[in-house]
Design a protein around this nucleic acid. Sequence first.
DNA 1: ATGTCAGGCGCTGCCTGA
Length: 258
Amino acid sequence: MKIATYNVNGINARLPVLLQWLEQAKPAVVCLQELKAPQEKFPLEAIREAGYEAIWHGQKSWNGVAILTPHIPAEETRRGLAGDPDDSQSRYIEARVNGILIRCLYLPNGNPAPGPKFDYKLRWFERLKTHAAQLIKQNIPAVLAGDFNVIPTELDVYKPERWLEDALFRPETRQAYQQLLAQGWTDSLRKFHPQQPIYTFWDYFRNAYGRNAGLRIDHLLVSPALAGRLSEAAVDHQVRGWEKSSDHAPTWIRLADG
DNA sequence: ATGTCAGGCGCTGCCTGA
């Protein structure tokens, strides 16, 4: 069972790339972020023609998350991250698929830091940790998948010294991520590739993809109840080189049958 | 500091967010 996460950076602008990748990769679950589309502008018909169903939480201009599954829509269990009823940004959707809880998230970018946006990022992170800890406690098979906007370590960025002040790499951000992992979550990509740089994002400036000047900020964390089933983890980095691509590449794991 | 995208507004080019 292949579970993927992909920040599309505008689902309508990326539709041809998304459909092409779906056809090739054939994932069983896809968590999408940055739809950049209001609820009614989600391209459901095109997704259906590609053999997928969707649940999604749109928003005008920014954010927006979705979960795609073949043939049958995922059984939605929540939309909107718990812990702040006043948070109106569409950054979280959750569903149960084949007995696994899938949490699709788009953590705030947080720049410029310090500042109110960084404060919002750290508060959002705290809510996520609280929510995640409950799953660990109950030993629920779960995956946290999405654009975390976190560069976990120096291995995950082409030039760490340039990112020290950035909200994606500041000590508070990295510490929050480490605290999340310390609950018992497995960082799937690192489990299979412990030593080498792996990137999931290359910005549009200065030929970043051509120079492989990337960041690893899209993550798939699996709960202890699932860790034994992890069989593979990878980035479909070639998709970043396609025409009209997102600045992120699809990232995925494979789970053995439970 | 730079650079490049998307969407929104509203009609052309500029703004914000990333």
